[in-house]
Every structure is written in structure tokens, then in C-alpha cells.
Simulated scan of single mutants.
Amino acid sequence: MPFVYDDLYEICREKRFLIDWLQELGLLGNFSGICDSCNVGTVKLVEDKSYSKDGIVWRCSSRLCNKKTSVREGSWFLGSHLLLEQAVKLTYYWVYELPGDFISRELKIGSDHTIVDWKNFAREVCLCILKQDSERIGGPGKHVEIDESKFGKRKYHRGKRVDGVWVFGGIERESKKCFFEVVEDRSANTLIPIIKKFVEPGTIILSDCWKAYSSLKSEGYQHLTVNHSIEFKNKETGACTNLIESTWNAVKKSLPKTGTQKQHYDSYLIEYCIRKKYLKEANDKFLTFLELIKRVYKCQKRRPLANLTQNNQVDQLNASTDLFED
């Protein structure tokens, strides 16, 4: 059964259920056990509305210690001013690309800035995952289409002049794996090092006739071109760049309709890559993204009983059966 919004709504109705669920997923730490500060008291989750807006904290049972730790300690949620249930629901809405005005109304968030910040947190996860799983594309016998495209809007909404940024990218035909990078210019000095960074030697590279690509054969690639001023497909070699062209259309459609800024284009492209690679074909997009968050934010788990003294094992066993204390 797919995880649907009704499931999330039921989980978020009770904060303790939500915390339990997030702990099971590895998105919140579990600090239950003997207190690290005093080595006497037992740390449990307790009601404490004075400590944070969550109303629940990890607290040592020893009155001499009484150390408190945020339920968000070490997690993706630490530092956010959103309620836990708001943050989880906002993540769900972001995964399914619901509009900002809908999110603001449903979660009763008055500031657009708060929503934008949380979306940027999500994109930071995308960046970390992309770095972790970074891989070169192509190789002998593989085909990679490359191209550059201008991202932005027409100056004053008139004519063909576009005020924006240049993005260089490539996509492997066989696997549909791709790369994108914002570039300052389209010179060979800029583009060739990027190609060598992302594309394996021996790859069959297909491109238009832009002069910056003229040295690709000497760099160890097979290079086929198509002259777009004459034809869409080279009649002799069959070379075309239809796949990268359609990818540009998909990327541009994925961008926010308003508020896109030049300095954020890298993050938008990274988000597109993660959605394409991990979420598009996932059985459940939301749960898949939560797994990606867990890979980036490894929360502390309960220490094993074997590490505790015999006198403290009874306290640990009691704590493991009753994590919450009023």
C-alpha cells in the first residue's frame, strides 16, 4: 500500500506518535538510557513545554543533573522554527511539488520566507546526495549528448534577449544519467574541463557545431555533430541532440514560476537531478526522500545494553518499554 496523505495526517495528529514514527525511520535520535553527563540518571522523553515549542524533551531523571536535550538534536529538523508536524508535512508537499500558496494556507504559515527556507533545506539534502553518489557517464560504445542553454526570462518580456545564466549539460542515451553545471561562458576553456570531469574517455559525444567542441577528438572522444542551421539530424552519421533538447524543456518546466534567482540555479538543477534519479520512478516518492535525508543526517540511536553496567541494565530495560514519561 502506498503511503498517502491520510496516513501522514493520522501520524501528525499526536506528537508522540509522530516522534515514534520519525525515530523508527531514523530521522530523530533516540537518547534513552544512562545519562552521559552524570552516569546515574536515566534519560527519557518527558513533557516540557517550557523548553521548546515541541513540548517534549529528553531529560535526565536525576534531580542533581536534570540535563535536557532537544528531541531534534542532531537531526534535519534542528534549528527550524517550524513545528515538527509542519516540517514533515511541508516536506511531503515539496516532494509532490505543491504550490507555495497552498502550503502556506494548509500549514498556516504566514511567511513565504519560511517556506522558501525549508525548500532550500531540502535542496541541501539533494546536493549532499548528489556528491555522495556522483559518477561519470558514458564510456566506450556509449552515447552522450551535450549542449548549452540559457536560463532566464526575456528582457522586459520582449524580443529574444534573455537575462539569465548559461547552463551546460549532458545526458547519456543508454541510461539517461545526466549532469548540469552553471557556466560563466561557453568557451572551450570552460566547457572542455567540464566534459572531461563528467564524461568517460572513449564516449561517442553528440553535439551541435559550436566551435568550443572542436578539440573533443584530440581529448580522446569520438565526436559526431549536427548543424542545426541546416538540419535536426545529420543525414550521414545520424547524429542528433533531441534527447538533451527535450531535457532542457523538462528542466525549465521544473523551475519555480516566480522568484528564480541566478545564484540559486545550481540548486534547482541539483533538485531536478535528484528527482529524476531517485523520485520519478520510486514506489513512494515521500518515503524515498526521507531515506535520502537519513543518509545525510545520521541521528544517534539508543546505546546497546552490552555497553551498560549490570546495575544500569534494569533502568535501560524499563526506559526501552516506556520512552515517554509525563
Rank of each mutant, 00 (worst) to 15 (best):
C178D: 06
K177A: 05
R173E: 07
S187H: 10
N189S: 15
G170N: 00
S175K: 04
G170T: 10
C178E: 10
R154A: 04
S175W: 01
R158I: 11
H157K: 15
F179D: 00
V182T: 11
G170R: 01
K177F: 02
E172I: 02
R161A: 14
G159S: 08
K155R: 14
N189I: 13
Y156V: 14
R158K: 14
T190M: 00
F179H: 03
F168A: 04
R173L: 08
A188N: 04
C178K: 09
L191S: 00
D185G: 10
W166S: 08
T190V: 07
G169C: 02
R158N: 12
N189W: 03
G170A: 05
K160D: 13
E184L: 12
V183K: 00
K160G: 10
N189Q: 15
W166P: 01
G164E: 02
R173F: 00
V167P: 05
K176C: 14
K177L: 05
D163M: 11
R173C: 04
A188W: 00
T190E: 06
K176Y: 08
R173K: 13
R154I: 09
L191R: 03
V162P: 02
W166G: 02
R161G: 08
I171K: 03
K155N: 12
E174C: 10
H157T: 12
W166Y: 11
H157E: 09
G170F: 05
K160P: 13
G164V: 03
F168G: 02
E172H: 04
S175M: 04
G164A: 07
R186K: 15
R158M: 09
R173W: 00
R186W: 03
A188Y: 02
R161E: 15
G170W: 00
R186H: 01
K176S: 15
L191G: 00
R154M: 11
I171A: 01
E172G: 01
V183M: 00
R186D: 01
I171V: 15
W166F: 08
K155H: 12
E172K: 02
V162M: 01
R158G: 13
T190D: 06
E181A: 04
F168S: 06
L191P: 09
V162D: 08
E184Y: 07
V162S: 02
I171S: 05
K177T: 07
G159T: 09
S187G: 11
R154N: 15
K177G: 07
K155L: 13
F179Q: 06
E174H: 05
V182M: 09
R158V: 14
F180Q: 01
V183S: 02
R186C: 08
S187T: 15
K176I: 11
